[in-house]
Write a protein that binds this DNA or RNA. Sequence first.
DNA 1: CTTGACTCTATACTTTGGTACACGGTTTAT
DNA 2: ATAAACCGTGTACCAAAGTATAGAGTCAAG
Lengths: 138, 138
Amino acid sequence: MTEELKIGRVAREAGVNIQTVRYYERRGLVSPEGYRDSGYRLYTDEAVRKIRFIKNAQELGFTLDEIARLLKLRIGRRTQCGKVRTQAQSRLKIVQGKIEALRGMERVLNRLIHTCARRGTTDACPILESLEEGRRRK
Amino acid sequence: MTEELKIGRVAREAGVNIQTVRYYERRGLVSPEGYRDSGYRLYTDEAVRKIRFIKNAQELGFTLDEIARLLKLRIGRRTQCGKVRTQAQSRLKIVQGKIEALRGMERVLNRLIHTCARRGTTDACPILESLEEGRRRK
DNA sequence: CTTGACTCTATACTTTGGTACACGGTTTAT
DNA sequence: ATAAACCGTGTACCAAAGTATAGAGTCAAG
């Protein structure tokens, strides 16, 4: 069976501060499974996974509000499937846009690394050439 | 020839506030090409492109400090090529990591959208299954 | 059965990335 | 030549996402 964890353990395993765990609870992101009589919060390891997810998603430029919406994306017996699909589709577009932008960066960085190996200088600010798809070009 | 732009125009074209442009200058991200006698800043359209880059990069989870480093990545006549390559390589790894994570999200969202179309419910929190590569799996 | 490690709530402070005045000088279009 | 629209510096304020601290209660290992 999955052990019950107290907040300190959860924080340590997820690599965040204890206050952060409580902060996420206030923000509606991660709730304890239950409470002890003393008021101590009790978690399962799902909480640890959630917090790691949050941290990763932040690195990808999502805000806590967006992350909350991502975490709530699931289909229950009673949930309107249509709403979930709509949400998921709009999130998907955002994700795909980010992937595209990052691929632009990847391409430019690769070029920079190789240009470097052979001849000399690059122009003014090579990285600018990424992330500019679909704007006026010249 | 490329016209000279005053700060208001730059801000408008890049879709940010004038104060933001000055803020970026304080942060060492975007500098005017020169000044008028009156003290007015004068820019070229490179500034507009830079600011758009900054905004895009922020959406991808980069901080202003990281973005400053990205913008400085170029090979000059006198620049140590090795240092630039090292930097570029480490940035590249980060970019590729983000792409991988986003692909995980993409996969899960796609699955969710299709699961939705056919039968009913998904498990507890499907999105958690992305962004978890290389940790304990059960 | 005590002592050190842990937890609780509540409040205050911090950092990052901006925004908003206030007050005064400059440009430009009529 | 003058009003509307800009720009300059300086200072203050804001929101998001934490972090820190105080004061008090709880747990668990010897």
